[in-house]
Amino acid sequence: MDMSEITDTLGTFKPELIPKETGGNLDDYEDALHVLMKFMGSMSSALEQVSGRGANAIVYQAGKRMGHESAKMMDKTEDLEKALYELSEVLGEEFYFIKWKPDAQDSYVLQKDNEVTVKLLFMDCVVRQTLRRTGLPQKGPLCYLLYGYMVGAVEEVMDLKAKVDIDHVGPNACLKTLTIKWSAK
C-alpha cells in the first residue's frame, strides 16, 4: 500500500475499561489477518529450520496448553459426543469439523480394547489458510498447533488422555483421527 493512501483519522481518546469501537474497517481486519498469517508462516518455517523435527513438539505443546486453557470453562463430560460438541465450541467456526466415516463402516465411533477412536473431517481451518498464504506445505509444525489444541481441549473436557493422528491433508479438508484412552488419566 502506498503510504499516501493512508488517511489519518482524528478523534478523541478517553481512558476507558472497555473500548466502544475498534477503530478499523473490514480492509484493516483483512490486512491484519494477512500480516499475522505471514508472521505465523515465517515463524513456523524458521522454527523448523532451527529445531528440525523438534519444532513439531514445541508447537504441539503450545497448542495443547492453549487447548487446556480454552476448555477450562467448558462443561466436563465423559460422553464423547458431548465432548466433541464442546470441542467444536472451543475451536469455533474457523475450525469447522464434522465426524466422518467410510460408507462401509457402521458407526462413527470405534471401540477397541480400552481405546475409542473417531475420525474428524476438518473443513475450515485457519492453519491451512495460513499455510496457503505463505506457500508452506501442510502437515508441518503449524498443523501441530491445531493437534495440540484439540488434544488439550479434549483432555480438559473429558479428563482423559487423548491423541490425534493425521490421516490425510487436502486443500479443502483434512481428516484426523481422535483417540481417547479410557484407562489413562
Partner: peptide
C-alpha cells in the same frame, strides 16, 4: 454439492 472451505487468505 460440497462444503467449500473459506479462503480468507486470498486478498479481496
Amino acid at each position: 454439492d460440497i462444503h467449500v472451505a473459506k479462503r480468507l487468505y486470498i486478498d479481496r
